[in-house]
Amino acid sequence: MQLSRPPVRLGVRLLVLLTFAILPGLTAAFDQPFLLDLALRMMILATAAVSLNLILGYGGMISFGHAAYIGIGAYAVGIPAYYGEYSGYVQLPLAIGAGALFALITGFICLRTKGVYFIMITLAFAQMAYFAFVSIEEYGGDDGLVINLRSKFTGVIDMESTHEFYYVVLVFLVGALYLVSRIVNARFGMVIQGAKDNEPRMQSLGFDTFRYRLACYVIAGAMAAAAGWLMGNYNYFFSPEMMSWTHSGELIFMVVLGGAGSLFGPVLGAIVLIILEEVLSGATVYWPLILGAILISVVLFARGGLEGALAMLERRK
């Protein structure tokens, strides 16, 4: 036992968040707006991945349909806007409420199954949502829906300003991290983690694990829909394609790569995955193959993902 371990993980967390915090100043100074755009995408997808980690990493519920919530949140911007309702006070609660409701209804069914069946049913529900939006011509069908203005919080925040929007996104990411850190360490989170580890034992102790899991599933759905609300605003556009299973798979990739069941892992996973995609897609058309190989190596050789690797550094020193 070492008395003082180098706080590698804490250092990385602070470094990442600090970099995000000062990035708008840097990109303005060096005239690199592209980087800001990249950071926005990282933070939004990281927020969604943090919510997925709550159910997948802490709760052992491997949802293969999490991108559906991003779609629900984004359409909660686009559809009201289509009818001329731009208020963020309408759109954001609508996104969160719709995400929670979709999670409640589908979770009620999904959570009666386990293992591979759970994965398949979450996937099936997400695909249903995807095809539903593809089939609604009114909202653009598979061409997607253009959002001509971002959510309005008149007099409070100007979401059209890139910098203000950027900090809104950062606040959502930090808020999601804080929320998950509270939840998983509270009594509720103990139940969720116990149910992942040994569900029959939890039941024989007296926990109605189904209900706790369902509540957890709803919280994660609401959070992911909030990330979707950010995504719709960010793109000024949403296409049902972004709810497809490949994007759900990407979110799982982020969680596993960063370290499932570690608070900050999904953020690292999102950052690294997006960088890899940028670099590899420029270099070769076979980039999805390389990504796949990386994922398999992480699953086989580095079960704790990036956070696990950092924790190992702390122990070694």
């Binding site: 509270r182 939840i183 360490n185 509270a186 009594r187 509720f188 103990m190 139940v191 926990f207 509540a215």
Partner: peptide, 8 residues
């Protein structure tokens, strides 16, 4: 156990 905030 629907307590989401205080550390158990």
């Amino acid at each position: 156990s629907y307590r989401f905030w205080r550390r158990a």
